[in-house]
Design a protein around this nucleic acid. Structure first.
Length: 419
RNA sequence: GGAGAGAUGGCUGAGCGGUUGAAAGCACCGGUCUUGAAAACCGGCAAAGGGGCAACUCUUUCCUGGGUUCGAAUCCCAGUCUCUCCGCCA
């Protein structure tokens, strides 16, 4: 959510900034609504003052007048609220503004590679895809999942189920013991307002799984990422400065409808309705956002270094970034079967965009109450890490070598072989 | 599912129709004292929004939404959440 005061102060700059997102905003309409809103507030406040004075005077002769003022206030207030809602509806559907160093471009074609790391493995045979490998091992079962549930789900079995759990535990341990994150086991369901806080609502309702709940007043959703629930730990809160930075990590299932991605990655477990992800969230003083983004990205790449998986880091272009982000690094892991890098992590700074929606604030050194900075990043997507291990560590016979770092988490197993 | 109790500022906690935006304490910020720190003492300290170049000023807010009243943190209704007891249960 943007600060209307900033827009008011420099409307043209605001419009220019949004052009980086390839968005045309009806600036005139926004400014008109804002002006109208303020006019109505002023009229209302004048009447409220008058009413207050009458009530203080306790002058019975003026009581009738006070009643009629109340009626006028009601009318003004209704109008004012409507105007405010209309303004907020527009503002809450506008994405965050990219930082200056974000490459401007419409889509992923304008993303820039920042760095490359690790060695791409050489095979003396044609590397198989993760789903071929998994199905041949009888440890990935997509058919069974479509029978019990539907498309874009999978049964992970036996040693691959263990591997999935091992990946998750390994990552959390690193982030807790080496990277200074606090482990959280959060709710997997979020209220409507929580979803609004991080920017999933109102604009991206189509991609969310809403669930039936007893009460009709409050809508509830399965989290599409732990970012939602972890970032909202700061919701409606004023932090003391000694509570910052807050760094938390959680491994949770994530649920996404993947609306609009029909036909994309239909085979395998690249794009599922349900997947595990280890998520990092930092809540920091806003001026520290970009430093924290670098730190967070390093925490994520460290996992790939330890797993000895080849990857590259890219900076997303203005048009490819998520709604709430002001700057995003994606980390892409090498997938031999596709002969290319695929996203395995996305680390974003959101500046104060989310905190303004959530009302997450803190007291700064001058004792002023200011909105915080929020960041989120995958550290890493568990399912895709499983894929990357299957494909990069595959052997001619279809067996899978376990990366050294994971062996302690796999009961010291060296290799996954077909039974 | 049944029966009660409660929700007040960053935190603890008074107030239960009229200068109450709200006592007191803690925390925090500034100062005095001190070589420095602690302690002590003095002062400041809620948020959101509007107006003003500014000093400043106005409005709203005591869980949320309605209602009663000239006037509500205080009374009434509905909802949400928390706690205690009983039942059920992973």
């Amino acid at each position: 959510m943007h600060n209307i005061k900033d827009i008011r102060n420099d409307p043209n700059q605001f419009q220019e900034s949004l052009k980086k997102r390839f968005l045309e905003v009806d600036l005139k309409n926004i400014l008109e609504l804002d002006e109208n809103n303020r006019k109505l507030i002023q009229e209302k406040e004048t009447l409220e003052k008058e009413k207050k004075e009458i009530s203080k005077s306790k002058n019975k002769e003026l009581f009738e007048k006070s009643k009629s003022i109340s009626k006028k206030i009601d009318i003004l207030e209704t109008k004012q609220k409507e105007t405010k809602v209309e303004l907020d509806n527009i503002l809450s559907s506008l994405p965050n503004i990219p930082k200056d160093d974000v490459p401007v471009g419409k889509d992923e074609n304008s993303n820039l590679e920042v760095s490359k790391s690790g060695n791409v493995p050489k095979f003396n045979f044609k590397p198989k895809s993760h789903y071929e490998l998994g199905e041949n091992l009888n440890m990935l079962d997509f058919d069974l999942a479509s029978k019990t549930t539907g498309s874009r789900f999978v049964f992970v079995k036996d040693k691959l189920a263990l591997l999935e759990r091992a990946i998750s535990n390994f990552m959390i341990d690193i982030h807790v013991n080496q990277n200074g994150y606090q482990e959280i086991s959060p709710p997997l369901i979020a209220s409507e307002n929580t979803m609004y806080g991080t920017g999933q609502l109102p604009k991206f309702e189509n991609d969310q799984f809403e669930i039936k709940f007893d009460d009709k007043n409050d809508r509830k959703f399965l989290i599409p990422t732990a970012e939602v629930i972890l970032t909202n730990m700061g919701k409606d809160k004023i932090f003391q400065s000694d509570e910052l930075p807050l760094r938390v990590v959680a491994s949770t299932p994530c649920f996404r409808k993947e609306a609009g991605s029909y036909g994309k990655d239909t085979k395998g477990m690249i794009r599922q309705h349900q997947f595990y992800k280890v998520e990092l969230v930092s809540i920091v003083e806003p001026e520290n956002c970009l430093n924290e983004l670098d730190r967070m990205t390093n925490c994520a790449t460290k996992i790939l270094d330890l797993l000895e998986l080849p990857y590259r880091k890219i900076i997303l272009s203005s048009g490819d970034m998520g709604f709430s982000a002001e700057k995003t690094f994606d980390i892409e892991v090498w997938l031999p079967s596709e002969n290319k890098y695929r996203e395995i992590s996305s680390c974003s700074s959101c500046g104060s965009f989310q905190s303004r929606r959530m009302k997450a604030r803190y007291k700064n050194k001058k004792n002023e109450t200011v909105f915080l900075g929020t960041l989120n990043g995958s550290g890493l997507a568990v399912g895709r890490t499983l894929i990357a291990i299957l494909e990069n560590y595959q052997q001619t016979d279809g067996s899978i070598i376990i990366p050294n770092a994971l062996k302690p988490y796999m009961n010291n197993l060296d290799k996954i072989v077909k039974k």
